[in-house]
Simulated assay, not measured.
Amino acid sequence: MDHHQDQRLVAAVAAGDEAAVAQALAAGADPDASAGQLRGSVLSEAAGSGRSGVVRMLLEAGAQLRTVRPHTPSALRAAVVGGHPDVVRELLAHGALAAQPGSTPSALTEAISQTSFQPGPATLQTLRLLLAAGATPGTTEEAPLISAIRRSASPVVLRILLEHGAPVDQRRSDDTPAVVLATRRGDHAAVDVLLQAGADPDARDPRGRTALMHAVERDERRVVAALLLAGAATDAVSPDGMTALLLAQGWQRQTVQFMLGERRVGLDNVQINRTAVELVPTGLRIAGDPQLFRLLASAIDIALDDLGEPEWQARTGRDPEVARAFAQRLRDDVVPAASGSWHELDATVDEFRSARSALAEIAYGTTPVTPDGSSRADIVDLLQELDRQPG
């Protein structure tokens, strides 16, 4: 072992200097030299940096594809994480898949993760290369389609996996179908991809609950719509006697009850067996620019003045005095954020719901006036933006 030449090789690889790499190797440097205590071999270093020419030279000099030292990345995994499809192609051509360690994550699972963490054409190309080469998950890992859904992967990733043979009704290791997993996450895009590819809309989880039942419980209306459009059975009954409609009634999901075909709905106290937990926050923080706070205040005043306090309370279920006081706070109590360029106001949920009710009356109700400088379309957009946010 020539320690001096090994150091020359490490420096040359780090610099991407192919001529210096060739000289060090010719002088006796070890092609499996360590690039650092936790960085793996020089081959892994070159692969992770996307230096395909250096990778080729090291391989021709006999560099090992397997992980030379414990707890360091293999060259293939380093290339996958780095998003370098040219290097991945080179390594695969030299048999890198067969040389992968049994530890997790596997190169394939890592590639799926990278499509979410570092999305771009290179990560998709890398994933395609691995699938075409026959890459498989580790023995303790979930199937690729399940891994992708768990990571909220883009629909294009799911389609690529399906194109390469992933079963559309793939199940997690506990026998939960992919469509149910996507439903529980509220991932309507993933649900749609699966359904369009032929997934069973009535597939049941180990408890006998269908995806529609889970979507209803979680008030995931876009998922409910996708499942119903795909023909999901509304009369399916779980082993514990639940139906989608019963679950909607038990959670008092009035809009979902209409979606399920009901024409008369209320707030009845229906006893059900729940599989979901719903958080009920008591306060929140609103962040934005001062003009947006003034717009919310104006919307409350306009809706209250147009409806009158008795009709406001009857239509919205909100205390008009709380609404009036909140409108004033929206004008007077907004302060600059301590660590940002926006402004903030802490509000109770009841206060915020008053503002939301006012926006809804202007957007969809009979109130004809809009706040100065805004159109009805602007109010609709703002209302939808608020409704998309958690809580």
Rank of each mutant, 00 (worst) to 15 (best):
D2M: 10
H4G: 08
Q7D: 11
L9A: 08
V10L: 09
A12E: 03
A15F: 11
E18A: 07
Q23L: 12
L25V: 14
D32N: 11
S34C: 11
Q37D: 09
L38C: 13
S41D: 03
E45C: 12
S52Y: 06
V54F: 00
L58R: 04
L65P: 02
R66K: 08
T67F: 03
H71M: 13
A79T: 04
G83I: 07
D86M: 08
V87Q: 01
E90L: 14
L97Y: 07
A99C: 01
G102A: 11
A107C: 10
Q114T: 13
T115N: 04
T115G: 02
F117N: 15
G120H: 06
T126M: 07
L127C: 07
G134L: 09
G138L: 12
E141D: 13
S152G: 08
L162W: 00
H164Q: 06
H164G: 03
A166G: 03
D175H: 15
T176Y: 07
R185L: 15
A189Q: 15
V191M: 04
A199G: 02
A199I: 05
D202N: 15
D202R: 02
P206L: 08
P206S: 06
A211W: 05
E220M: 12
D235Y: 06
T243I: 01
L247H: 13
Q249H: 12
W251P: 01
T255V: 02
Q257K: 03
L260G: 09
G261S: 04
V265N: 01
G266Q: 02
L267W: 14
L267A: 13
T282W: 04
T282A: 06
G283N: 08
L284M: 08
R285E: 12
G288K: 11
D289T: 13
D305C: 05
E311W: 10
R315I: 05
V322N: 11
Q328S: 06
R329I: 03
L330Q: 06
W342G: 13
R353K: 13
R353H: 12
S354F: 00
R356N: 04
A360L: 05
E361L: 07
A363L: 07
S374M: 12
A377I: 11
L382I: 14
E385H: 13
D387N: 13
Q389F: 10
Q389A: 11
P390F: 02
P390W: 04
